[in-house]
Design a protein around this nucleic acid. Structure first.
Length: 404
DNA sequence: ACTCCACAGGAATAACCGGGCG
DNA sequence: CGCCCGGTTATTCCTGTGGAGT
């Protein structure tokens, strides 16, 4: 970076000059004043919840749609509107929100709900103090709802996460929740599930499906031109006027539209591009900044996911890298020898193949099944990331030192 | 048409891990 | 502390399979 640029950076920082007017606007947690292009969805969510206006229990609701289509935003916003409506003040509705992916386990989810219920509630002893089985936590929840005659809306974000791991009948909290209403009178619960995965219903217990999706709303992806408009409206608030070039906006929308209409990705991209531009002392955000931002985000993502891998998945990625494009058997051999030099106990081949397909699912490596006739049927794997990037990501892992 | 390789990947089960208790 | 629970990882055992070679 040339010296004058550095000086400029300092000057700008001192004088508080910045490309950004309000950075927060581009944070994914930010709720815009006006939600664009989701009128239909908002209307339908509102309609589904309308029984609340009559003080009755609304149907359970399932909101589908890919990431960045505004599901969470619309649901939360609609609930807030209902809750804050002056005429409904006397009809207290409890809204409990949790994200299944963040809570990561079923009991974590329930405990989170429990805490939210306990909050502002007088009966302290019924609070989250239970570290007991899922069933008993759940029973406590139901007890409180019944006793206090609560009208509770459970919002479960990324609900598809709950279906991934297998459950027995009494640990499947969706099963429990969907049939709990017989036990909550005069209170009630209804569930709003939010899912990114469109076919997640198929993995669900059929008894749960019918009651969980009494109402269903699909969120369509945004079109490229809608994303452009959304970006423009955020830019107006977030950036100093006229700083973001038209071409940059277009590229952001195009990239986000390529996968599916993911508004969040577009906004993230814009923010990173803005930071990049600011850092290099440019006074506009250009197409080039967006392109670099896209590359940077992609690389960061790979690096962090490589870094956070457990030891044996790392060794296996190295094994795949070393024996690029070969069969499971050979990869396993390489893996075993790597383990030996590192003095780590090697895992079974069964486990290794399982890890390989996990790595494949996270797109760090790719594999395809091939049949070699008399030489059997196997899978060939190769890495999707250049070797030096992998090495770079692993280089400060002490356990891996001896195998570079 | 039949065989048989080199695995894929399902099912059951064991071993281990960590938070929240008493 | 030791224990229970629910999860998560690994192991063990297994059945299934596309196609080159015969």
């Amino acid at each position: 970076m040339p010296k004058d640029k550095i000086d400029k950076l300092l000057d700008d920082a001192i004088e508080g000059r910045s490309l950004f007017k309000n950075r927060e606007i581009l944070q994914s947690s930010h709720t815009p004043n006006e939600i664009l292009y989701r009128d239909d969805e908002q209307k339908r969510v509102m309609q589904a919840l309308l029984p609340l206006a009559k003080r009755a229990r609304p149907s359970n609701l399932l909101a589908y749609g890919k990431t960045g289509t505004g599901k969470t935003l619309v649901v939360r916003d609609t609930l807030k509107k209902i809750q804050e409506h002056p005429k409904l003040r006397t009809f207290p509705i409890r809204i409990l929100y949790a994200n299944a992916k963040e809570e990561s386990t079923a009991s974590g989810l329930l405990i989170s709900f429990g805490r939210q219920l306990g909050f502002g509630l007088e009966l302290e002893e019924v609070l989250p103090s239970t570290g007991l089985s899922i069933g008993s936590i759940f029973n406590k929840l139901i007890d409180v709802i019944k006793k206090e005659s609560l009208k509770a809306i459970f919002v479960i974000d990324e609900i598809d996460d709950l279906v991934k791991t297998k459950h027995t009948q009494d640990t499947d909290i969706l099963y429990l929740m969907t049939r709990a209403n017989t036990r909550t009178n005069p209170g009630f619960i209804s569930i709003i599930g939010i899912s990114n995965v469109l076919d997640f219903k198929e993995k669900l217990d059929p008894r749960v499906v019918s009651s969980l999706s009494e109402e269903e709303i699909v969120f369509r992806p945004y079109t490229v031109s809608q994303i452009q408009k959304i970006l423009s409206s955020r830019i107006k608030e977030a950036f100093v006027d006229g700083i973001v070039e038209e071409a940059a906006i277009n590229l952001c929308s195009a990239i986000a539209g390529q996968e599916h209409g993911d508004a969040r990705r577009a906004i993230d991209l814009l923010r990173v591009a803005g930071e990049l531009a600011e850092r290099e002392g440019s006074n506009t955000v250009t197409e080039e900044h967006v392109r670099n931002a896209s590359i940077k985000m992609e690389e960061d993502k790979d690096a962090t996911s490589l870094n956070s891998l457990p030891l044996h998945q790392k060794i296996l990625t190295l094994a795949v890298m070393r024996s690029n494009g070969t069969t499971t058997g050979e990869i396993y051999l390489v893996y075993k020898s790597l383990c030996k030099t590192i003095r780590q106990k090697e895992l079974t081949q069964r486990r290794a193949t399982q890890i390989l397909s996990e790595l494949e699912e996270s797109t760090l490596i790719t594999g395809k099944i091939i049949s070699q006739g008399i030489h059997g049927r196997t899978k060939k794997y190769s890495t999707t990331i250049p070797p030096e990037k992998i090495k770079k990501a692993f280089k400060d892992d002490l356990a891996l030192q001896d195998i570079l």
